[in-house]
Design a protein around this nucleic acid. Structure first.
Lengths: 229, 229
DNA sequence: GATACTAAGTGTGGCAATTACACGAAAGGC
DNA sequence: GCCTTTCGTGTAATTGCCACACTTAGTATC
C-alpha cells in the first residue's frame, strides 16, 4: 500500500452513459460485470480516475477501453456521491454522457473480453449500484438539452436527411413532430449545409443529405442566436 | 498516515458559490485565505469531503462552518478536475451554488475567525486556484436556469413585492423587463400567494407582499406546467 | 414499359402568445 | 395641502406557432 494519506479519501471514478439511436429506439451501451459485487449484472461503463489525467480524459479512456468507442460528443452530467452507493467502500463517481451514432460502432467488433451491448432505453436490464439512477439522470438531461442545444446531430452520421433528424427528435422527445413545421424551423436557422448529395440505394425518392455546420452555428451564437426545436 | 491505498487517490473537495442580491447588484460571498497557497487572496468557500458524508452534506457543512449560512437553496453545479488546478497535489472539486437573500445573512455577525465578505459580481477580486472559472460557470448556470426554474424567489426574503421580484430578474438577466407584462405573466401562472399584507415604512404607496407557493407549483409541474420568464 | 408503392418536398390561414406603451391612485414627507 | 415616489392596471399591433394535404421522384413488381 504505497499511497498513504492523513485522512481517509473516497475513491473517485467516472461513469459514462452512451446513447445511440436506432430506427425506432434510443439505446444505451452497457457492459456486463465480470466480478463481484453484482457479477453478471449490467452496468454503465466506467472506472477509476488516475491522478495524472483530467476527469474528461478518464471518461474517454474508460469508454474506449471498455467499449471501443472514441471521438464522440461527451459532456459532464452529474457527480454521484451517496455514502452507500458502493457496498465495498466510499466511491464518488463523476458521470458523463456521450452521444454517438451506433452505425459504425458495432460493439462486438471492438470489444473482446468484456461483454458489451446496446439496450433499448425503454427496456433496460437490472443495473448494478445506483446506475439506474444515473441512467435516468442522463436521459432527463438529454431530453431537456436536445431542445435548446444542437446535440441531436451527434446521434446521426456526419451526413443525414431531414427526416432522419426529425426522427431523432421524435424518439428523444417521445412525441410526433409536424414534418413541414420541423423542416421550416430547422432550415430557417441556417445551421445545416446542403451537401448536394442524395441518399443512395433507397427504394423510393432519395432525400437530400445535410451536414451540421458548426462554424456557422458558433458564429451565430456569438451574435445572440438561440437554438430551439 | 493511517489511510493507505493501493493506488494514488485525488483529494476530493466541495466548493460553494453563494449568490445574494442587493438593490442593484448580484453579489457573491467569498472568504479570504489564511494559508498558502494564495494566502491573503480570496476564494470560494469549500473544503474536504469526509468519507461518511454525502457531497451535498459536505457542501452545506463547509458553507455553514466558513460563512454561517445555512438552510439555503443549494444545487450541484459542476465537478472541476483539471490535473494542475491545485499546485500542491491533485484535487478534484465538486462545485455547488447556493442562493440566499443577503438580508439576514450579515456576514460579520456569524463569522469570527475567517474573513468573509460579499462582493459585487461585476467587480470580483482576484481569485485563488481556478475559482474564477467556477464563479463564471455558476453565474452562467444561474442566468440560464432562472428563466425556466422558479429559483429567483430564493434570492428574496420569504415575502416580497412584484417589483422586487422583477428587479431580481432584471439584475440576473441584465436587461430591463416591462412592468405590466411581467406582472401579467407571473400572476397568470398562479404560483404566488397574496399574503394580504403590504410593505411597511416606505415613503410611497405600499406594495402588496406575495409569497412563492411551492405546493401549488409542485402540483402544477406534475400536471405538465412549465415555468418560464 | 405500365402500374403501384414509398417517402420527399412544399405553402397558407387561424389562433395564441408576446410586445409595446401611459396614466390615475395611494402613501408618506415636507 | 402639496409634492414626490412607487403602485397597479388594459389594449392594440405584431409575431410566432400550429394544423393541415397534395404533387414529385425514384424503385420495385408484374
Amino acid at each position: 500500500m504505497p499511497f498513504a494519506y492523513e485522512f481517509a479519501r473516497p475513491a473517485l471514478t467516472v461513469d459514462c452513459v452512451v446513447f445511440g439511436i436506432d430506427e425506432d429506439d434510443l439505446r444505451v451501451m452497457l457492459i456486463q460485470r465480470g466480478i463481484e459485487p453484482f457479477a453478471g449484472m449490467w452496468a454503465i461503463p466506467g472506472g477509476f480516475v488516475r491522478v495524472d489525467e483530467s476527469l474528461e480524459d478518464a471518461a474517454r479512456r474508460e469508454l474506449e477501453e471498455e467499449t471501443g468507442i472514441r471521438d464522440v460528443f461527451l459532456e459532464q452530467l452529474f457527480t454521484f456521491g451517496r455514502v452507500d452507493r458502493d457496498p465495498r467502500e466510499r466511491v464518488v463517481s463523476v458521470a458523463y454522457y456521450a452521444l454517438t451514432n451506433l452505425i459504425g460502432h458495432d460493439v462486438h467488433a471492438r470489444t473482446d473480453a468484456t461483454n458489451a451491448a446496446w439496450f433499448a432505453l425503454s427496456e433496460p436490464p437490472e443495473l448494478s449500484f445506483d446506475h439506474a439512477e444515473i441512467l435516468e439522470a442522463a436521459y432527463a438531461r438529454l431530453r431537456g438539452k436536445v431542445r435548446y442545444q444542437p446535440i441531436g446531430f451527434e446521434l446521426l452520421p456526419d451526413r443525414f436527411t431531414l427526416t432522419q433528424l426529425q426522427r431523432v427528435y421524435e424518439i428523444v422527445l417521445d412525441r410526433e413532430i409536424d414534418k413541414r413545421n420541423f423542416r421550416k424551423k430547422i432550415l430557417a436557422m441556417g445551421i445545416l449545409k446542403d451537401t448536394g448529395d442524395v441518399q443512395k440505394d433507397v427504394a423510393h425518392r432519395a432525400a437530400r443529405l445535410y451536414r451540421f455546420d458548426k462554424r456557422v452555428y458558433d458564429r451565430m451564437v456569438r451574435k445572440g442566436f438561440h437554438f430551439e426545436v
